[in-house]
Amino acid sequence: MSTLAQLHRVTRRFGDVVAVDDVTLTIEAGSMVGLLGPNGAGKTSLISLINGLRRPTTGTVTLLGRSPQDVRSRQSLGSTPQETALPPTLKVGEVIDFVGRHFEDRQPTEALAEEFGLTTLLGRQTGALSGGQKRRLSVALAFVGRPKLVLLDEPTTGLDIDGRHALWAAVRRQHEAGATVVVTSHYLEEIEALAERVVVMEGGRVIADDSLQAIVGQVGVRQIRLRTPEVAAVSALPGVARAETAGEGADAAGLVLYAADSDQLIRELVRSGLPFADLAVRGATLEEAFLTLTDSGRAHSSRAASVEADAASAPYATEVSR
């Protein structure tokens, strides 16, 4: 397989904030790569280094063998504007034409509109579109020039379930037609639907880079909430990956536990005979799963300790983007 994009020991700083921290990454032709991480992990910054919008502070980025600042390398690159960015006075057909005419080998406007469900909207000004329609147009623009490499930054944020599935299907068809796709998301579901290889980022670093299956196995964590007067004993049960206290009650403290196997943990809890109330179980968010991944060495910590640890290990706090 040939290499489409390569980052070699790339660091990007914004003032004191290190948005991308010593990342080395290779994107091979034909792959479908998911870039997964919580908000502020550095995903958007990484994308902006590949598409040439920003330059690395140190390290090198190559896009199709050239610098991303070289116009020729961008002839084979497709990217999406944020949906709020579309010029409101231009019509949908005009926007597609305008972007398409930058490329030597472009998809006809009608065919692209058909593929992304925009056919009936071609004569409408983009300012009159709904959020979902704008999203579809934004993603469609990435494919108008038949690019070799497509960068999709949070492609379905704000879409309802139907819209999301329709857009995923369209992206998969474009991938089967030959486009290499890099998609960022903080939804595990989106990465599962699209990616074959998953790169997990946190605090500007790549903390995992593996097949979809391997990654899903690592971050599939569940959250268990309950109230108990025996905080220490419950937190020490086998299977607890991480524990946080959540506010003091009159007679019992709230407790939040994370575990890979919540069913087994609850069996242990009942068997232990420890008193508890208000039990609730749900899937952990990705942020919570990541904290558990990076926190596993510090299991059973109290909330205060975990806040301290976060502060020490997290200089990535703010999302650095436009």
Binding site: S48, N51, G52, L53, V71, R72, R74, Q75, L77, S79, T80, P81, Q82, T84, A85, L86, P87, V99, H102, F103, G145, R322
Partner: peptide, 14 residues
């Protein structure tokens, strides 16, 4: 300051 402009910069226009 608008996000459309950075998008235009990713297009192959010198």
């Amino acid at each position: 300051e608008k996000p459309w402009d950075p998008y235009l910069r990713t297009l192959p226009a010198p």
